[in-house]
Write a protein that binds this DNA or RNA. Structure first.
Length: 265
DNA sequence: ATGACAGTCTGGGACTGA
């Protein structure tokens, strides 16, 4: 099974590129983030025409996550019970969706498509929200894995954390900014203790995001913030990983590129 | 060449992103 995650930064703007990527990349399952649309605006037909089922959640022009699969898609659910809300209005944002994929090829995998809050500034309420969101998700999946230790679970998406210094183009530039702070890195790494291993780093070294501004891509001044964390039973089946840097090229690119893992059947 | 922000909307600028 080829499983990919991609912050596509608007599914409506990017739909042609997404479908082309699915077909070219032989992608069985694609987790998407930053749909930037509501359900009644989502281009379901484009996916079904090429053989993919889709589950998605989107409330407005912000956030939005989805999972597309051509190897079965069932048991979908939105968010998690302890998911923090945002703002005075206590909004449940569209940042997490899960589903079981792979049943048609006898390789059931529970996939989570995640769009971790940005944090904005270290002293911003959004930063505390981000840390709480990660902590609560970690606790949720830790409990789930404790209940089903053999489960194949993939936590994939835009984590909005650069866990190592080498994951940003300049630590000097990020001094005092979000994504590289120790509490964020601790929150990211805490999933390890919960039983989830990041499975792409041992196969590939590359950024996954380059800002649209300041010629960041041509200068290769990027960040590595998109990751795949796997439960033990899944991690042992991961045989490779790729970061498709070509998807950042040309007109109409997202600022993120897809991260792909190969899972043995 | 991979090129100097981009997407969305209770829109005409503001907000969000990282």
């Amino acid at each position: 099974m080829r499983l990919a995650t991609w912050n596509i930064n608007s599914v409506r703007t990017r739909i042609d590129r997404i479908i082309a990527f699915l077909e070219r990349g032989g992608i069985d399952v694609l987790a998407m983030q930053e749909l930037k649309c509501k359900e009644n605006q989502f281009p379901f037909e484009a996916f079904t025409e090429v053989g993919y089922e889709v589950t998605m959640v989107g409330h407005n022009q912000w956030n939005g996550v989805a999972i597309a699969s051509r190897v079965g898609l069932s048991d979908s659910s939105v968010g998690f019970s302890e998911m923090p809300t945002w703002g005075d209005d206590k909004v449940s944002e569209a940042r997490a969706i899960r589903a079981v994929v792979g049943e048609s090829i006898d390789l059931p995998v529970e996939v989570w498509s995640l769009y971790v809050p940005n944090g904005r500034e270290l002293d911003h309420p959004h930063y505390a929200y981000k840390l709480q969101w990660l902590a609560n998700l970690k606790e949720h999946v830790r409990a789930e894995l404790e209940e089903r230790p053999k489960a194949k679970i993939a936590l994939v998406g835009d984590w909005n954390v650069a866990p190592e210094d080498e994951d940003v183009w300049s630590m000097e530039f990020f001094e005092g900014k979000t994504h590289v702070s120790q509490p964020e890195r601790d929150a990211f790494n805490a999933f390890e203790d919960a039983g989830f291993t990041e499975v792409t780093r041992k196969f590939v070294t590359q950024y996954t995001y380059w800002d649209y501004q300041q010629l960041r891509f041509p200068k290769n001044q990027g960040m590595r913030i998109d990751f795949v964390k796997a439960s033990p039973a899944l991690a042992e089946r991961v045989t490779g990983a790729e970061i498709d840097r070509n998807e950042r090229k040309g007109k109409g690119a997202s600022d993120h590129v897809p991260v792909i893992v190969e899972i043995a059947e």
